[in-house]
Nucleic acid binder design. Structure first.
Length: 579
RNA sequence: CGGGGUGUAGCUCAGUUUGGCUAGAGCGCCUGGUUUGGGACCAGGAGGCCGUAGGUUCGAAUCCUAUCACCCCGACCA
């Protein structure tokens, strides 16, 4: 490509609404422009990178016997109502009403559609397993789009769905996809961490997340210090803190007047107490069941862990339910005297570190102190579970190993889904034993745009992007420094030679000063730069420089082609460690 | 949805407090010239209903009302 003909609108100034490096650089290097909040137009360079990522994904998926299909972005709302996921997604789901009054969902994902395909086309175990995928736009009406393409309302996702006749087959494909993902992210040049994850709303039994560690990531990942275990914060288990045993007589419970002190922080300040003495009490609902969850005041309840402990989906109780249960305003709930009115009491291990604590009195504007777990509310019983239901924090251990926290960008996730969708949508097959069974499913997602953005997050410097060669918009940029006819002719010759070899070359043929071309080349992040100047031309040399390195190598003009081909091979090979 | 902020040239922003010449700067763009290895210089030039709609006033970018868009923080979203 000739630079003079290309639309590569680089800018010097950083747009004011871009905060993280990838967002700033994608705008500055002319990869994309914003159309509206959370929606972007990809310009030629940005689209070339996305195309290259998609091709890598496609190649590796095909290699693993997945078959590419394309499903509609517009899906009938009825389909979502059958699985109830319209409610799970809630306002995040974008939809429109058509002229006939039908509601149409702009697909945030495609489990329902692909399962209905399976329902129609899969009849026998002989057709299984099968793995179908697509690469397409997805839509989510995010409550707050941000960080450029990291959280946008419209994005490109590779989503794959596998169907199986038994668990073992699912495990095999899950493992295959896991390995496929490793190859994909390695080929894209990313440094990633694989963490155990919760499957959350997706339903199902097992999940791993592929995460690129970096400062601007929105996910928190937790690793043991020896690296032997990693999970995201929703999942990360913690060792129980040493429990205190009750070994003396504590004073009886005493009511204290705490007018309008509702949050842990307010009460601590008001009573000059530590949050470690507080028993935080939260009321959850699961269907018609009421669940009381207790955690020490300085910790946070982890809703995912709580959901797993309960075994059913849960939600925070509304104000009316809490008032009805406790007889008090929200903010004064406590476990004492409440256990007979609820269906389940879930106590976090941390509560057992409290000898005599403070908690709500179930009476507006009152708390109680000298509350002894085991004395003033039961720790054992039919509906009482002591479990790990809090978020891991700095200082926690798991299996005795210190936990380390990092931020990261989620670029992919694999799930074992089970039969949640197939059962509801009638995706059944006839097994060997002539019984009809729902397909067992897995699903596997990759955020294409996030791969591009996270690559920039981890590979950039003050001058611009430093693309891994596999996803760089061009492999080589030629920057003639000077504009004599001999010089242009020499550059042109190299350009033609490399093009003939199938190398992706950007030829900076603009009538600009050297400095301008160098600055743009650095900003764009093309991995290999070939420069010819008057001096080097006189010596019959060209200069070759890698974007990521400082050194410049002089190479005789006649050998440039060979040298470049070798370099490209070498750089690509570096990224194929998992292939 | 709650709290805060911003809308002025293609981009980044002054000007608004205290209403008053023809609305400004830098970058970018066009013309001519000098330059040409790390974002050159000189001269000339194009480009704005001051987000939108009302209102107050002799007079509004500036004051008032409404509305829209965008950004930041937070409610717990996979």
């Amino acid at each position: 490509m000739r630079y003079s003909k290309a639309l590569i609108p680089t800018v010097k100034e950083v747009p004011s609404d871009a905060e993280i490096p990838s967002h700033q650089l994608m705008l500055r290097a002319g990869l994309m422009r914003k159309l509206a909040s959370g929606t972007y137009t990809y310009l030629p360079l940005g689209w070339r990178t996305l195309t290259k990522i998609m091709n890598i994904v496609r190649q590796e998926m095909n290699k693993s016997w997945a078959q590419e299909i394309l499903m509609p972005a517009v899906q009938p709302m009825e389909l979502w109502e059958t699985t109830g996921r319209n409610i799970d997604y809630g306002p995040t789901m974008a939809y429109f009403t058509d002229r006939h009054g039908r509601k149409n969902v702009l697909a945030p994902t495609a489990e329902e559609v692909v399962t209905s395909i399976a329902a129609g086309e899969i009849n026998s175990y002989k057709q299984l397993p099968i793995n179908l995928y697509q690469i397409s736009f997805k839509f989510r009406d995010e409550f707050r789009p941000r960080f450029g393409v990291l959280r946008s309302r419209e994005f490109i996702m590779k989503d794959a769905y596998s169907f199986h006749s038994d668990e073992q087959s699912l495990d095999e494909t899950y493992k295959t996809m896991y390995e496929t993902y490793k190859r994909i992210f390695s080929r894209c040049g990313l440094k990633y961490v694989i963490v155990e994850a919760e499957s959350g709303e997706m339903g199902g039994s097992g999940s791993h997340q592929f995460t690129v560690p970096c400062e601007s990531g929105e996910d928190v990942i937790v690793q043991t210090e020896d690296g032997s275990y990693a999970a995201n914060i929703e999942k990360a288990p913690v060792d129980a803190l040493p429990a205190k045993t009750v070994n003396k007589d504590y004073k009886p419970i005493e009511e204290i007047h705490t007018p309008n002190q509702k949050t842990i922080e307010e009460i601590c300040t008001f009573l000059k107490a530590s949050a470690k003495e507080m028993i935080k009490t939260l009321v959850y609902k699961s269907g018609n069941d009421l669940i009381l969850a207790l955690v020490r005041g300085d910790f946070e309840i982890n809703p995912e862990k709580l959901r797993c402990t309960v075994g059913k989906s849960i939600e925070l109780a509304d104000e009316a339910t809490i008032k009805n249960l406790t007889g008090a305003q929200v903010g004064f709930a406590g476990p004492v005297g409440l256990t007979s009115k609820i269906n389940k009491l879930i106590i976090d291990h941390s509560v057992l570190t409290i000898e005599a604590g403070i908690t709500g009195a179930n009476k507006t504007d009152y708390h109680i102190k000298n509350v002894v777990p085991g004395r003033d509310f039961p720790l054992t019983g039919n509906n009482i579970i002591i479990a790990d239901i809090r978020n891991a924090v700095e200082g926690d251990t798991y299996k005795g190993k210190k936990l380390i926290f990092k931020r990261g960008i989620e670029v992919g996730q694999v799930f074992k889904l089970g039969t949640k969708y197939s059962a509801k949508l009638g995706a059944k097959f006839l097994d060997k034993d002539s019984t009809e069974k729902p397909c067992i499913m897995g699903c596997y997602g990759i955020g294409i745009n996030r791969i591009a953005a996270s690559a920039i997050e981890i590979f950039h410097d003050n001058d611009g992007i430093i693309w891994p060669i596999s996803i760089a918009p061009y492999e080589v940029i030629i920057t003639p420094a000077g504009n004599s006819e001999e010089l242009s002719a020499a550059a042109e010759k190299i350009y033609n030679e490399l093009m003939a070899c199938g190398v992706e070359v950007l030829f900076d043929d603009r009538d600009a000063r050297g400095g301008v071309k160098f600055k743009d080349a650095d900003l764009l992040g093309i991995p290999i730069r070939i420069t010819i100047g008057a001096k080097s031309l006189a010596e019959n040399n060209a200069e070759i420089k890698l974007r990521r390195e400082k050194e410049i190598t002089k190479v005789p003009l006649a050998q440039v082609k060979e040298k470049i081909l070798q370099l490209i091979e070498k750089l690509k090979a570096e990224q194929n460690v998992d292939a």
